[in-house]
Design a protein around this nucleic acid. Structure first.
Length: 295
DNA sequence: ATCCTGGGAT
DNA sequence: ATCCCGGGAT
């Protein structure tokens, strides 16, 4: 029998995960560290269902970091297609270059080495170390923060993110055993994604029901500061950037100013979006002179 | 603290 | 039709 509440938490989550985990290709035992790294880049922003086909195609085309590093960054941006946040395609390419040049083409297992790579932050570094190499480190994404806020702290929602506090909170409930810690990292995330969801948690199906501090407290409502509402996408700079990127991806010849002008009526906003893309390196002036192309 | 994309949920 | 999402960079 478990001797502490912490053991109960991880044992319960792990038993649930072994039973209910979705079968995903990047969770297969044979999946390479590179495959796991690519999945983490894509999943930073996009639900599993949309990532699946993109991930398969990506790994068939670029099965190793060196393969991706060997093509221009623009190829990565084009293949990224509609996953959104195309800067991440650029970062993933830069990451492949760095792995190839600085790590002999092998995805590093060390958290600090991973953190030094482009596009890899506190979450992705630990996710790759834990899931690709079995390193016992706390992996904290927004799902995990929510699960811990509810099950452990009895709060409806986590407070504002704090890397040190969040990592310490997960470390405090992480199993000592390396293999169990890896399962718990994945399981806590999966529970947050599938059952302990933000808006409509399926508490009826939750394996932690008997342990959950939020449930024990009678599901008190969140009374902390509300997150600022995000600007509408329609008509935003993001929207215009998206239109320009779509044009650049579809084109196999430089996109002219006239073609860009046709995309959006507000010239000022269009120019702002374009200069932003140039500054980000997502678009470059065609060396030949006319128009713009992918890097 | 703010920006970045494009879909899916409500 | 509107709301919501989320890790990394700056």
């Amino acid at each position: 029998m478990p001797e502490t509440a912490t053991e109960t938490l991880s044992e319960t989550v792990n038993a649930w995960f072994r039973e209910h985990a979705r079968e995903l290709p990047w969770r297969e035992p044979g999946c390479s560290a590179w495959g796991i790294l690519v999945s983490e880049f894509m999943l930073q922003q996009t639900p599993v269902a949309r990532v699946l086909p993109q991930w398969q195609a990506w790994l068939e085309r670029w099965p190793t970091p060196a393969a991706l590093a060997a093509v221009p960054a623009g190829e990565a941006v084009r293949a990224w297609n509609r996953l959104g946040y195309p800067r991440r395609a650029l970062w993933l390419h830069a990451c492949a270059v760095a792995i190839t040049e600085q790590h002999a083409g092998v995805v590093p297992a060390d958290v600090d080495a991973l953190l030094a790579l482009p596009g890899i932050g506190p979450y992705t570094a630990r996710a790759v170390a834990a899931f690709a190499y079995g390193v016992r480190v706390p992996v904290v994404d927004t799902n995990v923060r929510r699960v811990l806020a509810r099950a452990v702290d009895g709060q409806a929602e986590p407070g504002p993110p704090s890397a040190t506090r969040d990592l310490a909170a997960m470390a405090a409930v992480l199993p000592v055993d390396e293999a169990e810690a890896r399962v718990f990292n994945a399981g806590a995330m999966e529970l947050g994604a599938i059952v302990c969801t933000a808006r409509a948690p399926r508490c009826v199906d939750c394996p932690l029901a008997s342990v959950c501090a939020w449930r024990a407290a009678g599901y008190p409502a969140y009374n902390g500061p509300r997150r600022a509402v995000q600007k509408k996408y329609e008509g935003s700079d993001r929207h215009v950037r998206g239109l320009i990127m779509r044009e650049l991806r579809a084109a196999h010849a430089p996109v002219t100013d006239a073609e860009l002008d046709a995309l959006w009526t507000d010239d000022v906003q269009l120019a702002r979006a374009l200069s932003g893309l140039l500054a980000d390196g997502l678009a470059v002036r065609d060396p030949g002179g006319e128009g713009y192309v992918l890097p």
